[in-house]
Design a protein around this nucleic acid. Structure first.
Lengths: 114, 114
DNA sequence: AGTCCATGTTACTTATAAGTTACCGGGTTA
DNA sequence: TAACCCGGTAACTTATAAGTAACATGGACT
């Protein structure tokens, strides 16, 4: 496919928009956990995502929420629990993440293997 | 789609592998230029990618070359010119970059628009 | 009253990415 | 011979991301 210069700039911006949402050391792992376990509390995710600190988790969850990929709901239990889950919109990421995973997996083989 | 825990870890690693290759402020722009103009010299790319410094360009080109996404060929002209172009393998990125662009573009509209 | 858990926040430090400025070698042009 | 172009490299600075440790709040439990 060929684009003109303006379309090209738009594509670059769009790719960066997508990458910004997924960038950083932890977001993919958090999304994956929520993808896999569907509904998790703060402390659950803290345990699921090996190595993350509560500070980083808090920060990343906020960013994901701002981007409407996950929802945060406070359950009125004792003590209160806070549940996070992928929104319906967040699920639209599955295709693109799947593609990234496929390419990344093939790339690892290509670079390591030959 | 549901994965078990091991498959899940593999997916996360694969996504990170893919993102690492594309990460940073400049790589997508460089790839886009090479996608659009097919064959470019160092100084051409320096001019095409607005704002990049020769140091960063040099560094990013090296990384892309290590990942076999672009090729570097020294032409025996006077003065010598160095051409960079996407490898055939590098072109396999087009699908995944296209997907990222589509999602990123939709995301921008979703977040800004409503 | 003191301690624990859950869900964070604050202040501070460290590591990584990016930017700036200057310079190099080899050939070219004025 | 002096200044210039090309394709970089090197040393240093600045900005951004991530990590660490301690503390906060509010209810429950001992």
């Amino acid at each position: 496919m060929d684009w003109n210069q303006e379309q090209c700039k738009g594509q670059i911006m769009a790719v960066h928009d997508a990458m910004d949402v997924l960038s950083g050391k932890w977001k993919i792992s958090i999304i994956a956990v929520l993808c896999f376990k569907h509904k998790r509390r703060f402390s659950d995710i803290l345990a699921d995502v090996k190595g993350i600190s509560n500070k980083m988790l808090s920060k990343e969850l906020k960013e994901l929420e701002i981007n409407k990929l996950i929802s945060r709901t406070v359950e009125d239990t004792q003590p209160i629990t806070v549940n996070y889950e992928l929104t319906e919109y967040g699920q639209t990421l599955q295709t693109v993440i799947g593609q990234l995973a496929d390419w990344g997996s093939a790339h690892r083989k290509y670079i390591m293997g030959k």
